[in-house]
Simulated scan of single mutants.
Amino acid sequence: MKLPSIAQDVVLLLARIGVGIVFVAHGWQKFDTNGLDATAQGFQGMGIPSPTISAYFATGVELIGGAALILGVLTPIAGVLLAINMAGAFLFVHMPNGVFASDGGWELVAALGLAALTIAAVGPGRFSLDRLIIRTPARESVRV
């Protein structure tokens, strides 16, 4: 069974917007609500290596990468950087706490990281700035 190309592009648009909003919200929380110094202190308390650099990296990648997903611009780069960021959160913070986010577990970071990586691999779809800027031909429909 094959979904129509337009349906795939709408789903990709909705996925990019939804995942992007979550990343922007978390990046904004680190930047504005907590502040970068407080985020770095929190990272230090969690044993994250180079906590100040890590705080700036995570905040920047979540804010800029999340916005890039929403707009569909530089999508492969944004998706990979966001996935790397979530891999760090998984390895350094959430993995020992089990699966469930309510217990500090890794389910949210895994879902977000894998969603970002999937979008990077599949592409942003027709409704994206990447498509307008690069002027790529319509991609083949994915067989389901």
Rank of each mutant, 00 (worst) to 15 (best):
G60A: 03
L36D: 04
T39P: 04
V122T: 12
L82P: 01
G98F: 06
L69Q: 04
D9Q: 02
Q41C: 09
A120S: 11
T59Y: 03
E107H: 04
A7R: 01
T52K: 15
A111P: 05
V99M: 15
D9N: 13
A121Q: 02
G18S: 15
R135Y: 06
G60R: 01
P137A: 13
V109I: 01
I53Y: 10
I6V: 12
G60K: 02
E107R: 06
T136I: 08
G20D: 03
G98A: 08
A120N: 02
V22F: 11
F90R: 00
G66N: 00
A120H: 09
A101E: 07
L114M: 02
G104I: 05
N85P: 10
Y56L: 09
G35P: 09
V142W: 14
A83N: 00
A55D: 08
A116C: 08
G113L: 08
R126L: 15
Q44Y: 11
L74K: 09
A89H: 05
F100Q: 14
I70Y: 06
F31D: 11
P76N: 03
Q8K: 11
I77P: 03
D32P: 09
A58Y: 07
G72C: 01
I119Q: 04
E107V: 02
L129N: 07
L74S: 15
V80E: 02
V142A: 12
L112H: 05
R143G: 10
W28G: 14
